[in-house]
């Protein structure tokens, strides 16, 4: 319990349990071939809030995240059982095209992965393939708007046509966030978005998340409990492929009910 006292909970306002639910997962099991990676995970993520998934590495939190936008479809031999709803709509429905789903659910990865294109083309990528812009000026508008929202506009406004790979790590990650925002998704998934960044860049991303949550449902996987405590309103603790405990961040960090959660957040395991 020593650890919890050091964690800053400044931004993590308590979120009422009756907040509107955006993502509702029920009884999720995931198999990689014969190996089961997730066991009967059920969890709800509220809209306009940050939900953090924490747990030791290999516990299945990233696997769960990839179920939400069906990125697991791209892995050969991966099977997902159970039901995930976004706004009460089953995402695993055969009739729901993953293309449509992923245009509603953006994703940011562990390592910044800007495409080897210009900054402008990186952000314009989504709107272009989905046909969201009917004119060049409209596209420019979307790019500017997204970069502004990602807090990158000031830094790159004068070099939009230089390659995105030339930016610093933190800038690249914000560029990737801008790229995700550009298609105006409802949900943004972040898979350890700061693990490859330095503390200053991390702070900027965290600040950005806090601003974005006013508009989006954000689910973030993190191995840093301090980060979870700083940015999230709800936290879920995964262990060995099972969801151990979920609740408001404050509750999880100050008063965990499960001894495994307690061990993990105090640094005794994991």
């Amino acid at each position: 319990m020593q650890m919890t006292k050091n964690v800053t909970l400044a931004r993590a306002e308590a979120l009422p349990d009756h907040a509107p639910i955006k993502i509702n997962a029920m009884g999720i099991n995931v198999f990689y071939g014969e190996k089961q990676a997730l066991f009967d995970v059920s969890i709800a993520c509220p809209d306009r809030a940050v939900t953090a998934l924490i747990g030791p590495s290999g516990c299945g939190k990233s696997t769960f995240l990839r179920c939400i936008n069906r990125m697991n479809d791209t892995i050969v031999g991966c099977r997902v059982d159970g039901r995930i709803e976004i706004d009460n709509e089953d995402v695993n429905l055969k009739s729901l095209d993953p293309v449509v789903l992923r245009s509603r659910v953006g994703m940011v990865f562990q390592k910044p992965n800007p495409f080897p294109k210009s900054i402008f083309d990186n952000v314009a990528y989504g709107p272009k393939i989905h046909g969201f812009a009917s004119s060049k000026s409209e596209l420019e508008g979307i790019v500017e708007h997204s970069l502004k929202k990602a807090g990158l506009w000031g830094e790159v406004a004068d070099r939009l046509h230089q390659p995105g790979t030339g930016l610093s790590g933190g800038q690249q990650q914000r560029l990737v966030i801008a790229r995700a925002i550009a298609v105006n998704p409802e949900v943004i998934l972040m898979d350890e978005p700061c693990s490859a960044l330095d503390p200053i860049a991390t702070a900027k991303i965290e600040e950005l998340m806090d601003e974005l949550r006013e508009q989006y449902c954000i689910v973030i996987v993190t191995h840093s409990m301090a980060q979870a405590a700083r940015v999230s309103q709800r936290t879920a603790f995964f262990h060995l492929g099972r969801l151990v405990e979920a609740g408001t961040t404050e509750a999880i960090f100050t008063n965990p009910t499960d001894p495994r959660t307690q061990d993990y957040i105090t640094g005794r395991s994991g």
Binding site: D97, V100, I129, G131, F132
Partner: peptide, 18 residues
């Protein structure tokens, strides 16, 4: 906006893309 710009136009486009 529950559809967030995903109109019938978008659906037709997805079909074409597939």
């Amino acid at each position: 906006d529950p559809r967030r710009g995903r109109t019938a136009d978008f659906e037709a486009r997805v079909k074409k893309r597939n």
